[in-house]
Amino acid sequence: MLDVDKMKKIGLFAGGVLFGTAGVKVLASKDAKRFYINCLAAGLRAKDCVMTTATNIQENAEDILAEAKAINDERCKEEVFEDESAPEEAFAEETAPLEA
């Protein structure tokens, strides 16, 4: 005679097979396919939106970088100009005649 444990295992196996077969049929139905297509289309739209945003951020970052480089170049030129004029002013002060 069959034991209760064996009957339970056989019942679970049969239920799993039945549930799996029904699941495959549901997943392969036309409604499910339309759902998959709509999800994929939404994913593609989201990808386009993210890529557009990423491109805008990259362009803004490039503009910021270019402006920062321009500021640094201007400061560098000002420092070079100040360094060149400083020795001449100091020399002019040293060679000026003393007033009595």
Rank of each mutant, 00 (worst) to 15 (best):
K8T: 11
A41G: 01
T55V: 11
S29N: 15
N60D: 13
N72K: 08
A41C: 03
R75C: 05
A92Y: 00
F35C: 00
T55D: 11
P97Q: 00
S29K: 11
R45C: 15
G16N: 08
G15Y: 10
V80M: 07
K33R: 11
E67T: 06
P87Y: 08
L27F: 09
R75V: 12
K9N: 02
G11Y: 13
A86D: 07
E94Y: 06
D48L: 03
E82S: 05
T21G: 03
K47W: 07
N60P: 00
L98G: 04
A42L: 14
P97C: 02
E93N: 10
T52L: 05
I10S: 06
D3K: 01
G16S: 02
E84W: 00
V80G: 01
I64S: 03
E67Q: 07
N56W: 00
A96R: 15
G11F: 13
V17L: 15
V4K: 15
A41P: 01
V50R: 12
A41Q: 13
D83F: 10
F35R: 03
F19K: 09
K30G: 02
M1V: 01
E59N: 15
A100E: 09
D48E: 12
T55G: 02
V17Q: 15
Q58A: 13
G16A: 06
K30D: 08
E78A: 10
E67N: 00
D83N: 04
I64K: 15
A42D: 07
N60T: 06
D73H: 09
V26I: 05
A90F: 06
F19E: 07
K8C: 03
G20A: 14
C39Y: 01
A96L: 14
R34K: 11
K30I: 08
P87L: 02
A70Q: 04
N56E: 11
E67G: 01
T55Y: 08
V26A: 12
V50N: 08
T52S: 10
A90V: 14
V24M: 13
K69M: 09
E67F: 00
E93L: 13
M1F: 09
C76Y: 02
A46K: 04
V17I: 13
G23D: 05
K77V: 06
A32E: 12
N38A: 10
M51W: 06
E74G: 01
E82V: 02
G15W: 09
D31S: 15
I37L: 14
D83L: 01
R34T: 00
E99F: 02
L65H: 10
G16L: 03
E99T: 02
L12C: 03
A66T: 15
F13E: 07
A54C: 05
C39S: 00
F81S: 12
N60W: 08
G20E: 00
I37D: 09
C39G: 00
A22G: 05
N38G: 07
N72F: 12
V26N: 01
L65P: 03
K8V: 03
E88S: 07
A22Y: 00
M7G: 00
I57D: 05
E59S: 12
Q58I: 06
A100R: 02
T55H: 09
C76F: 09
K47M: 06
I57N: 06
A68H: 01
K33P: 06
M51S: 10
E79R: 09
T52N: 11
A92L: 13
Y36P: 02
K33H: 07
A32Q: 14
E94K: 06
Q58M: 07
K77H: 00
A46L: 13
E89I: 14
I10T: 10
S29A: 08
F13W: 14
A46N: 05
A100D: 12
